[in-house]
């Protein structure tokens, strides 16, 4: 996994292999699914948005770095 902070208040978490998008999405139970297709799932909760790509990348919007690190710990164990 590689975490990168990108312009526009976003973070990219990249994996070196494909990921199970449903499984990852299930970690965010209090988020609403706004887009779902075979390649990706987009979740949102108020201003926070998460886009999970099957090819192995998750984009996080409007998250603080600390929050991302907490999420990382959870994802690591999936």
């Amino acid at each position: 996994m590689k975490l990168r902070e990108i312009c526009g208040g976003a973070f990219s978490l990249k994996f070196d292999k494909e990921i199970e998008i449903e499984k990852i999405a299930n970690l965010f139970k209090d988020y609403k699914i706004v887009i779902k297709n075979e390649d990706s799932i987009k979740l949102s909760k108020k201003e926070k948005e998460i886009l999970i790509f099957k090819y192995g990348e998750i984009l996080f919007y409007n998250f603080k770095k600390d929050e991302i690190f907490e999420i990382l710990e959870i994802i690591k164990n999936v």
């Binding site: 990108i6 990219s12 887009i35 948005e49 886009l51 984009l59």
Partner: peptide
Amino acid sequence: DYLKSHEIAKLLDLEGIAVRSGYH
């Protein structure tokens, strides 16, 4: 309408297209 700039840029990158996204 629904996707963020980085999401579009990422989807384009998957097709070999390099664009910039964010605040420039």
